[in-house]
């Protein structure tokens, strides 16, 4: 594979602002987030969900139950490559039955991860409604899925790769665009 060209699209301070805005939007749309539960999709959706919950607590003093949902076992491309390692699934305190569940992920791309998450969700319980929050929407949907809260719309080509870095996982908050001249996108 050729050496990718890299470009930083979102700086650390902007990542924080974007998260603040999404937190405000969720509060606004759900009239104070009284029955909201946040469910992050590992790896980077999980810390994102925790940060959103922390910001919502700071803005309105609401304690939003937060969990993580590993979707590996529900993927439709398991047979396409080697076995993937599993990530933790933790149900938000109080469960998800009757809640407005907001799924949180870093990048929305084909929509297949979200489809798998919806399947996984159905076996945890029955939410009142499900919404989707993503830090980056890079387009190229392969399924009829859209996000309710979008941090940044980043139009990309399929040969490019959007890499979200979060301080909890990578030590720094950034979004990079890698242009790969050869090989497939992640």
């Amino acid at each position: 594979m050729a050496v990718p060209l890299r470009r930083c699209l979102v700086q650390p301070a902007d990542v924080a602002r974007v998260i603040d805005r999404i937190a405000h939007e969720i509060l606004e749309k759900s009239a104070g987030a009284r029955d909201v539960a946040l469910l992050g999709i590992p790896t980077r959706g999980a810390p994102l969900a925790r940060r959103l919950a922390a910001r919502m607590a700071a803005f309105e003093g609401v304690e939003v139950p937060t969990g993580s949902l590993d979707i590996t076992l529900y993927r439709d491309d398991l047979r396409m490559r080697g076995v993937r390692a599993l990530e933790p699934t933790t149900e938000p305190p109080g469960g998800i039955d009757g809640k407005l569940v907001v799924l949180v992920d870093d990048v929305l791309f084909s929509g297949r991860t979200v489809r798998a998450a919806l399947d996984a969700l159905g076996e945890l319980g029955r939410p009142r409604a499900v919404q989707l929050a993503v830090l980056v929407d890079r387009g190229h949907r392969e399924l009829p899925i859209r996000a309710d809260y979008v941090g940044k719309n980043i139009p990309t080509s399929r040969t490019e790769n959007v890499a979200v870095r979060l301080s909890e996982v990578d030590g720094v908050d950034e979004v990079w665009l890698d242009t790969v001249t050869e090989g497939a996108p992640a």
Binding site: G82, V83, R84, A184, P185, A186
Partner: peptide
Amino acid sequence: GGADIGAPAPAEAIGEPVPAGVA
């Protein structure tokens, strides 16, 4: 759980992702 490995591949560790290229 993963892709079918046609021939026995003793070098490949359990759970180690196959290098990208079929995403």
